[in-house]
């Protein structure tokens, strides 16, 4: 299917771009997801606003509140950033970036766009299938072919979130800086939203004008300007593990990111996040609770891993993801032990 015709403009500033956005005018960054969606006729904006011409949107800058990663930073530039490469607390992010997609896609795709990807679900991506996420009445995966679908937080949509970096970023307690119209909740022109709030589970009342149910709370007139990774405590470390069916270029069957801060040989704080298992990057709160004050021993890990999947609700064809999630998580812990 040919893309619907659209008009195109280069933005000079975020404010200018945001002021022009609406349901029919969409921002364009790397375009690796948007152009594919447009080719399939799944979205058909009338206008695209190119964000790549906005000065200062790409790159990594250290601020008092942590690292600010410009939303237009490509995955490959971010992965090779010297500061990221050096810091053990950020290792999960580098690993997640390096295991994403392919060199070509990493050169093109941006970190902001990566967080805003639509599900890769084979029902969602099929223009013939009127699934719930696209404004239809039901999820076709729920009782259909769902080996790649969710084991947590599913319903009404059971498609997992496709981003690897988001899993790592959530484990690093990152936030996004969102620019939007002054008249809403954007003091100084922006608002800061923790990723844990930014990603939203499928909700019937959370809907765009075109009937689509978005994966984040971003409104159609808002733009992600930056990802903010807060300064971690001294000695914090992180790891990321991804399980795929192919050696590369595959979305995660399951991924796991763990960030640990130790107090002596006991866990002072941890953030444990699973990917490929829920409509959003899935924070495993029970695992974190189980770890608090514990050693990272075989027993401690086993308890945490069990706790992480205690609430899993697999579908007809993805029971195996429960075992995979446990193993991926255990591997991530092993990497940090």
């Amino acid at each position: 299917m040919a893309m619907h015709p659209f008009a195109y403009a280069n933005a000079n500033s975020l404010e200018e771009a945001a002021a022009n956005l609406d349901g029919e005018t969409r921002p364009l960054a790397g375009g690796t997801d948007l152009v594919a969606l447009m080719k399939d006729g799944l979205v058909a904006p009338k206008r695209l606003v190119n964000l790549k011409t906005v000065p200062g949107l790409a790159g990594v800058v250290a601020h008092a509140d942590g690292l600010h990663i410009g939303a237009l930073t490509t995955l490959s530039n971010l992965a090779s950033n010297p500061e990221l490469q050096e810091r053990r607390d950020l290792a999960a992010l580098v690993e997640a970036l390096e295991e994403s997609a392919t060199p070509q896609l990493r050169h093109t795709a941006t970190i902001g766009g990566n967080l805003l990807q639509w599900p890769r679900c084979w029902y969602f991506r099929n223009p013939q299938v009127p699934c719930w996420r696209k404004g239809g009445r039901r999820c076709f995966a729920f009782q259909g072919e769902n080996k790649y679908h969710t084991i947590f937080g599913g319903g009404p949509c059971f498609a997992p979130h496709p981003s690897d970096p988001s899993v790592a970023l959530m484990a690093l307690d990152a936030s996004v800086l969102v620019v939007g119209p002054q008249d809403r909740d954007h003091r100084n022109g922006f608002r800061v939203v923790p990723l844990a709030e930014f990603f939203v589970l499928p909700r019937r009342d959370h809907e765009w004008a075109d009937g689509y149910h978005p994966v984040t709370l971003l409104e159609t007139d808002e733009i992600v300007a930056a990802v903010v990774v807060p300064q971690a405590a001294d000695g914090a470390r992180s790891a990321f593990v991804k399980v795929m069916e192919r050696g590369a270029w595959d979305f995660a069957l399951v991924s796991a990111a763990v960030s640990l801060t130790m107090d002596g040989n006991r866990v002072a704080a941890s953030r444990v996040v699973l990917g490929g298992v829920a409509p959003i990057p899935w924070r495993a709160n029970q695992a974190e609770a189980a770890l608090r004050g514990e050693r990272v021993s075989e027993d401690g890990v086993a308890r945490a891993v069990r706790a992480a999947v205690a609430d899993a609700r697999p579908l007809g064809h993805n029971e195996y993801k429960v075992a995979l999630a446990k193993q991926a998580l255990a591997q991530a812990f092993r990497a940090l032990a």
Partner: peptide, 13 residues
Amino acid sequence: IIDPATGLQLTAN
């Protein structure tokens, strides 16, 4: 992989 309910190919890419 073919969807049993709709008969559509899910892996046509």
